[in-house]
């Protein structure tokens, strides 16, 4: 499955980029994320609880960052596994300053799923992924606003 899209953040590029590299910010943004801990510079371990159609299950996984190119782009690699199957994804994110103190996020990626997740949940996974990304970005926007205010 492929995902692709964009989102406009109200905030400077550097701040947006930093937020994307901050596990706590990411952890609060992802719906159902239960924990996220940094293992080393570029690796995080996390646990998430997902609801996809008839399936609701916990997944554990590793998030790693590659091709880090601050503050422009990076690649997020996710590998998760749980009772209801597994998911493996790569997402490329790119940030562009579009002026007006706004930053455009472009993302594109692909996800492979297996197990019950695939055999029973695949019809829903598209829309679930889209809605997760959307609500995630909205949460991040809030975090961004808070951070900018604090500064």
């Amino acid at each position: 499955m492929n995902v692709e899209g964009e989102y406009i953040f109200n905030g400077p590029q550097q701040a947006v980029y930093e937020m994307f590299n901050d596990p706590t910010a990411l952890a609060t943004a992802v719906p159902g994320m239960q924990k996220m801990v940094q293992v080393d510079e570029t690796h995080y371990e996390g646990a998430i609880f997902l609801r996809i159609g008839p399936i609701s299950a916990a997944f554990e996984g590793v998030l790693s960052l590659t091709d880090v190119n601050p503050p422009e782009s990076c690649t997020l690699n996710i590998e998760g596994k749980g009772k209801a199957g597994f998911a493996k994804g790569v997402g490329r994110v790119k940030f562009t300053d579009i002026g007006n103190n706004q930053t455009k996020l472009n993302y594109s990626g692909e996800v492979n799923i297996g197990g019950t997740l695939a055999s029973v949940g695949q019809r829903m996974i598209d829309s679930v992924a889209k809605s997760m990304i959307k609500s995630g970005c909205e949460k991040l926007q809030k975090t961004l606003e808070e951070r900018c205010q604090q500064k």
Partner: peptide, 12 residues
């Protein structure tokens, strides 16, 4: 293409 059966219920 990964060999996952995408139609394992009467929903699909």
């Amino acid at each position: 293409e990964n060999g996952q059966l995408m139609t394992a219920s009467f929903m699909d």
